[in-house]
Simulated assay, not measured.
Amino acid sequence: MIERRLFLGGTALAAGVPLLGAAGWSASRARPASARTRTRNSGALPVSFTNDSGRYPDDEILLYIVGTDLTTDEHCWVDSDGTPHPVSEDDNTDDGYTDYSIPLDSVPDDMTLPFMSGRIYIALGGKLGIRIVADGDGNPALQLPSGWVEDEPGFDVLHDSVEFTHSEDGMFCNTTMVDQFSVPIGIELAGQEDHATGFFVPGGRDAVFETLAGDADFGDLVFDDLRVIAPGHGLGVGRFDGSYYDPYVDRVWEYYADTDLVVTTNAGTFTGRVEGDELVFDGGVAPIARPSTADVLFCDGALDAPNDGITGPVAAIVGAALNRSTLLDHSEQPTDDPDGFYLDEVTNRYAAVFHENTEDGKAYGFAFDDVEDFASYVQDHGPSAFAVTLTPF
C-alpha cells in the first residue's frame, strides 16, 4: 500500500515536495557512468548530465544544486566539485540574488553529489533568482524560484528541477510537475538495480502544452511555450477557478453519507462515513473536513497528511482519489487501475496529461501522485551513479 515519507523535512525551502514510488530500468538507455570517481565528500555519488534538448547548447545551460546538507542540517549550495557550502545572506550579490550556477559545459566528468536533500535546477538560456533570507529562527535559508510569479527574476527562463535525498540509506529521487512544468527531464539511477523514469514519449512536451492550452478549465495555466503552472498555483494568480472541485466534492460527500468508504493502508483497513462536513473514520484516524479546491490541488489543509502512520496514509489516499476522481466509482481505496483515473468531468486534467505522455506512465502531477506508485520516482539503497538527461523538446 502506501508509506508516507519526509522530503526536505525540517527545512525552510520554498517548495519541498514529498516523494514515494517505484520505476523500472529501460534496457534501451545508457547506464549512468560507473562509480569510478574519487571520493571527496561524505557519501559522494557520481552524477552526470546530458543535454539532448536540441534547443540550447551546453554553454547556455546552468545547473543549481541546492538544499539541506544532511551532515550539518544547514541549507547549502553545491559547487562543480560536488562540495556543499553553507548559504549566507552575504551570497546575495547578484542584484539581490545569489549566483550558485554551474555552467553545464564546465561540469567535470567526475562530479559527485554529497549527502544532502534538495533540488537540481536546470535553467536554459538565463539565470534563476535564488535568494538567501533569514528563517523564523534567524538562520540563512534558501528562497527558491516560483515559476508561477510573473515578476520574479528568471520567470522568462525555461527551467525545471529534479528532487532528491541522498543519505546513508540510499538515493531517493524524482522528477516533478507538482509546481510547474517547462523542461522534459529523465533520470536514471544505478545501484543494486538499474532504474529510469521521467522520460517523455516523442512529442510529449508539445502534447502537454497543446492539450492544456485547449482546455476550457486549464488553458489559462499555459504561459506560451514557456511553462505550464500547476492549478493550485493558478488559484493564487487568478488563472484557475477556486470552486472547480466543489461539485465533485459535494457528490462525494452526499454519496458517503450513506455508503462506507473503506481505505486500506500498511497500518490496516479503516472505514469512514460522512457526518456533516467531516469524513469520519474508525481506528483513530483524524476526521477529514470537507476539502476546498485548494485543499485537493495542494493536498493540504483538510487533506494534510501527517507522518503518523495512521491519519497521514488515509488522507493521502483520499487526496489521490479526489485528484484522480475515483471516489464515486470505487468505495474501496486505493485503486491501482490507471484506466479508471481522470474520467470524471471534474478531475485533475493537469496531472492526467503528464501520465499520458511519459514512457512509463508515471509523473508527479500532484503531491499524492505516489499513491499506488504512479509518481516518477526511483530509489536505491546501494546507489553507484545518478544521471540526469534533458530530453528532446
Rank of each mutant, 00 (worst) to 15 (best):
366 F>Y: 15
158 L>Y: 09
33 A>S: 12
187 I>M: 06
320 A>I: 07
386 F>N: 02
291 P>F: 11
124 L>C: 12
29 R>Q: 12
5 R>D: 09
134 A>T: 14
8 L>Y: 06
33 A>D: 11
359 E>A: 09
113 L>M: 12
371 V>L: 01
43 G>F: 10
338 P>E: 06
150 E>R: 09
356 E>F: 01
120 I>D: 09
331 S>N: 13
180 Q>N: 14
190 A>F: 10
226 L>N: 09
161 S>L: 14
325 S>R: 04
342 Y>Q: 07
120 I>P: 06
24 G>L: 14
148 W>G: 08
386 F>Q: 05
356 E>L: 11
1 M>S: 05
277 D>G: 02
367 A>V: 14
358 T>K: 04
349 R>L: 05
22 A>E: 15
136 G>V: 10
223 F>P: 00
199 F>I: 07
37 T>R: 12
158 L>G: 04
377 Y>V: 08
230 A>Q: 13
147 G>M: 10
105 D>E: 05
65 I>K: 04
114 P>E: 04
135 D>G: 06
207 A>V: 03
35 A>S: 15
254 E>S: 15
336 D>N: 13
223 F>A: 10
301 G>A: 05
74 E>A: 15
13 L>V: 07
275 E>D: 14
285 V>I: 09
129 G>D: 01
310 I>G: 08
355 H>N: 03
308 D>F: 03
354 F>P: 00
48 S>D: 09
272 G>I: 13
54 G>C: 04
373 D>A: 11
261 L>C: 12
229 I>H: 04
322 L>G: 03
171 M>D: 08
249 V>S: 07
69 D>S: 05
262 V>I: 13
269 T>G: 05
57 P>A: 12
393 F>G: 06
49 F>W: 00
109 D>I: 01
215 D>Y: 03
199 F>A: 09
